[in-house]
Simulated scan of single mutants.
Amino acid sequence: MPLEIYKRGSVYWVKGRVEYNGRPITGPYRKSTRATNEAGARDWIREETEFQIRKHVVGEEHALRFVDAVEIYPASPTTAKKLLLILDEIGDLPIGAITGALLKSLGPKLKPQASSDTWWREIVTPAGAVINYAHEFKGTPLIRVKPYDKFERIAQDQRRQKSSRIERVPATREWIEAFCTEADPYNAALVRFMFETAARIDQAVSIEPEHLYPETCQVLLKAQKGHEEGLITVSPEMMAELVALKPKRPKNRKTGKILSLRVFGYGSPTGYNNRWKTICKCAWIPYLSAHPAGRHGFYTELVVRQGVDPVTAAKAGRWSDPNLPMRIYAHAETDEPEIRARFRTKNVQAERAKQFNKLKSKKENENE
């Protein structure tokens, strides 16, 4: 019997089998379509029938389309928004027909004015995650995509006449002090906290009064970027500064909802931007966002300026791989003329040593 719908409560269910050329090609169905109207239930039957026929004719590996894989993928709202754009291009393609080169080619087509980093982050990464999730649960082919190389990145930057990788400038102690001189207590404490702990801005603004433990000088940070929630230790001076702040209830600018008490008074990781720009302007210092002021400043201060070994600094900043911060967060602060001067100094010293040895040998010969 072909698939038929019937109603159970407010939801339509389906029973029967999928048939192809008058012959059943599946086992018996008795499952919900999750549709609350007849049109939705019949759409479910049509899509399921098409899938099972493709599976019967070409095999499951080629039957599952990208759109089918998206339906079973547990996407967040942000990822789902990115996938909608991709679905318009490759939604009907079988998973087995999608290659890394195909995914990379979508970048110039879908976002011609974006950088190659954006292509990777907003197109290749979410699409690859969907395909590999289907591999895990449906046995479809796994996909590995070679990242865009520097030549592809440079070529795209030239086409759009804009650099995609601007060198970040880490905060210095002098910058921090100048900032805090003009800042209100909340923003002064915020920038000092991130500079001292390498906390991310979202972690910092999410701190609530109950996350502070003054007796042990510890602060509870939320989980982020693959790291679990955990306690970090701060200096007694930092803890005293945090405890002295009167917590505020920020408002969600999109919904108008009043949020829980926050130590720094911000309700989102972008709320500080305009205020910091004003502070930097008043202090006559260049504007730095939270990331270079915090994580970049923290690692450069420890490793480059104070000579702390990279492994210790990485652990203190909660980086699991010491190579990552060395590659991204450590910024050299010796200029090129100074480096050249060191070579010249060594040559002069070597010449003087050579002259001294000649004089010494001459005196020894005269004494003999």
Rank of each mutant, 00 (worst) to 15 (best):
R8W: 03
R192I: 07
R121I: 06
E4W: 04
R17A: 04
T79R: 08
E182R: 14
W119Y: 09
A199C: 06
D149A: 08
R8E: 07
I143D: 06
G27V: 10
S76N: 06
Q158W: 14
G139R: 06
R249Q: 07
R253A: 09
K360N: 13
K277N: 05
E177N: 13
E366K: 12
P292I: 05
V304L: 07
R159F: 10
T233G: 08
K246E: 15
A199G: 11
Q349T: 14
E50G: 09
A240Q: 10
R65L: 00
P126A: 07
Y133W: 07
S115G: 08
Y186E: 14
S164T: 12
K315C: 05
D92A: 15
K248G: 04
V304T: 13
Q161S: 15
V263R: 01
S116K: 04
D43M: 13
A353Y: 02
A114N: 09
F298T: 02
K81Y: 12
A244C: 09
W119Q: 01
V14G: 04
E167D: 14
I5C: 03
R168Q: 12
R46P: 10
T172A: 06
I95D: 01
V234P: 01
K277A: 10
N37G: 05
E196V: 05
L288F: 02
N132Q: 02
E210N: 15
L242Q: 00
T33A: 11
K346I: 15
I25Y: 07
F137H: 11
K82G: 00
Q355F: 11
H331F: 05
A127I: 02
W119F: 07
T181G: 07
K81M: 11
L85C: 08
A316R: 09
D335W: 12
G230A: 15
L261Y: 13
E47M: 03
A129G: 03
F356G: 07
K248S: 12
K360S: 14
V191P: 00
F356H: 15
K281V: 03
Y73G: 03
L93D: 05
G59H: 07
G100A: 06
P185L: 04
F151N: 13
E174T: 08
R153H: 13
I201F: 11
K222T: 03
P185C: 05
S32G: 00
K82Y: 10
W44H: 08
A155Y: 04
G100V: 05
K248F: 11
R200T: 09
F343C: 08
W319D: 03
D117F: 12
G265E: 00
T278E: 15
G9L: 11
R160T: 10
G22D: 06
F137G: 11
L245Y: 03
R121N: 07
D157S: 13
D157H: 08
A80Q: 15
A353M: 12
L324W: 11
P147I: 04
V130K: 01
R305H: 13
S10C: 10
E241Y: 07
K150M: 14
P337L: 09
E228R: 12
E122W: 13
K254R: 14
H291W: 02
S361Q: 14
G297R: 03
P236L: 02
N274V: 12
W276N: 00
Q158E: 13
R8V: 05
T312Q: 10
R144L: 15
A188P: 01
S320I: 09
E152M: 04
L102F: 04
E47V: 06
G22M: 05
W44P: 02
P170H: 00
T78V: 15
T33R: 05
